[in-house]
Nucleic acid binder design. Structure first.
Length: 501
RNA sequence: UCCUCGGUAGCUCAGUGGCAGAGCAAUCGGCUGUUAACCGAUCGGUCGUUGGUUCGAAUCCAACCCGGGGAGCCA
């Protein structure tokens, strides 16, 4: 154990020298008197070549016996080789097995989501999951960087709370020394108290929602970042949210190119967003856009595009199916793979074709005063190539603490919708700072003023205009990584029907 | 809670009323540059569960269980 270990991500700096590696067998191939080991050590993956004629009998026997995820120590020479992934490989001089593994369940082949989720503790070792966790780390670091460099103080708010902050959502109930308590769905109200102490604060912690949601955007336990700023109005709030998202994306693009390429993320949309101003529209304008001829036409065109794509795919499938009969074995496999891809894509298109008319109907029939549904958000964001910030919502559909405009009909709230159909990643508002108004709002909502007494104190003692927002970490990770479901953005997701591992 | 699709070998799937199948994994053998290596052989089954229809059910019907996708709600 006293040998100096070299980590795989540093190997490029050690070409033509001998190093010691320790790690796990990601995959292994053998070819007579050569064994190719793909070794991962947490920092990366490196192909290690064992040549029968250049190692001891013990090392050779060990190499031949290796199976996936066996833990090993390697000593060898680092060489540049274009045939190897990453351009560097290790020519092994000796190999020790720490533990020989048999029947590791996750093979390099395809697996279903249920199988993988049941083995999440092992799945985390796979390349894609590894990349996602690293990008998540990068996003977290970028968020702290952004706020810390602007003088924000990170504060922590309680997880046990005596009541719901916003009447509507379902919370997890627990027993707190024989008293009913709930797991926090937001730290916002406490954040406001801390902002009155420190001016600029943010929280970064877990939140819990007991809704029985089964969609790609929901978790029961997720992490949220909630800045709260004294002397900020809605516009300043929106500026801050835009700067923050740009800063996060820029930092991830700069530091995580390898991970994003492992995830096959097309980064053009992310790169564009860093440079361009976000779209800012008011709720009324969004409704107008949703119900417009332009939107209807765009959706019709989308249907035509999908139909055309299906025709092209079907033609390709016919052509390669004909070729299949007389093809060589390797080509047959290639064709079979391609046909599976084509079938999946066609299934996806058929679902789109079933859905788009519904989207169109939902958009066309949208009536002022309701909240946007998932498809409405998608239809809105499809028309822009940067995030869309929707502000000035009908006051009735927003929470009691949001400040209203002069006409008392609009809440000074803002939702930030991510591009590419990722939906709402930020929700925020300017808060109501007037004592009388907030008291009457609490009454109107039928909430118990006694429960909010400490919160109301914030309006009694030095009340000032202030604002804040919440950023959903998992949705942000899903969007930046280009993942179709938030369950892969957190190490051990908690969602309806999933509490283990 | 509702809508919708699915559950067949360790994994991914094919099989729509008549002998339970393929690829991968596993096991054994071969191969000196492999890239989800390849080639040959072997092994592998409570067809989600229970009941029904039928000469005969993986296949048809009913109920239930589990999972995927979506709605509502939201980050």
């Amino acid at each position: 154990m006293n040998k100096q270990l070299t980590y795989i991500h540093q190997l490029k700096n050690h070409i033509a020298t001998d190093v010691d590696l320790a790690g796990w067998v990601y995959n292994v191939r053998s070819s007579g008197s050569l064994v190719f080991i793909e070794c991962r050590d947490g920092s990366g993956i490196c192909q290690c070549v064992v040549n029968k004629e250049e190692v001891s009998v013990e090392s050779w026997d060990a190499a031949v016996s290796l199976k996936q995820e066996s833990s090993i120590r390697l000593h060898g020479l680092v060489v540049a080789d274009e045939r190897s992934l990453g351009g560097v490989e290790l020519q092994v001089k000796s190999l020790d097995v720490i533990q020989l593994v048999t029947e590791y369940p996750i093979t390099p082949k395809e697996h279903g989501i249920e199988f993988l989720m049941n083995r999440r503790h092992l799945w985390l070792r796979s390349q894609r999951q590894w990349a996602v966790m690293r990008v998540r780390n990068g996003i977290i670091f970028a968020i702290h960087n952004f706020f810390q460099s602007r003088g924000f103080i990170q504060t922590d708010t309680p997880i046990f709370t005596p009541n719901a902050a916003e009447g509507s959502t379902t919370l997890f109930e627990t027993d707190f020394f024989d008293e009913k308590a709930y797991l926090a769905q937001t730290g916002q109200l406490y954040g406001e108290a801390l902002a009155m102490a420190h001016g600029l604060i943010y929280t970064f912690g877990p939140t819990f929602r007991a809704e029985k949601s089964k969609t790609r955007r929901h978790l029961s336990e997720f992490w949220m970042i909630e800045p709260e700023m004294a002397f900020y109005d809605l516009d300043m709030n929106m500026d801050l949210a835009e700067d923050m998202l740009k800063s996060i994306v820029a930092e991830v693009l700069k530091k995580y190119t390898h991970e994003l390429s492992l995830l096959e993320r097309d980064t053009s949309s992310l790169e564009r967003l860093v440079e361009k101003a976000f779209v800012r529209i008011k709720y009324d304008e969004a409704v107008e856009l949703l119900t417009s001829e332009k939107t209807a036409k765009m959706l019709d065109e989308l249907v035509q595009q999908r139909v055309l794509e299906t025709q092209e795919l079907t033609q390709e499938q016919d052509a390669i199916e004909k070729e299949h009969g007389s093809a060589k074995k390797w080509r047959k496999k290639q064709i079979e793979k391609r046909i599976i891809d084509i079938k999946n894509r066609i299934d996806q298109i058929e679902e789109d074709l079933r859905n788009i008319p519904k989207w169109k109907q939902s958009a066309q029939e949208f009536s002022w005063g309701s909240d946007f549904g998932g498809s409405d958000e998608t239809v809105l964001t499809m028309q822009f190539d940067v995030p869309v910030m929707v502000s000035h919502w009908p006051a009735e559909i927003k929470a009691f603490y949001m400040k209203r405009d002069e006409t008392d009909t609009y809440a000074l709230g803002v939702d930030v919708l991510a591009p590419e159909g990722y939906g709402e990643i930020v929700g925020g508002s300017q808060r109501e700072d007037n004592l009388e108004v907030i008291l009457s709002r609490i009454e109107e909502e039928g909430l118990d003023p006694e429960v909010f007494d400490w919160y109301i104190d914030l309006r009694r003692f030095g009340s000032v205009p202030h604002a804040g927002f919440g950023l959903g970490l998992e949705r942000t990770v899903a969007w930046i990584c280009g993942l179709s479901h938030v369950r892969e953005t957190i190490a051990f997701p908690r969602m309806m029907g999933r509490i283990t591992p």
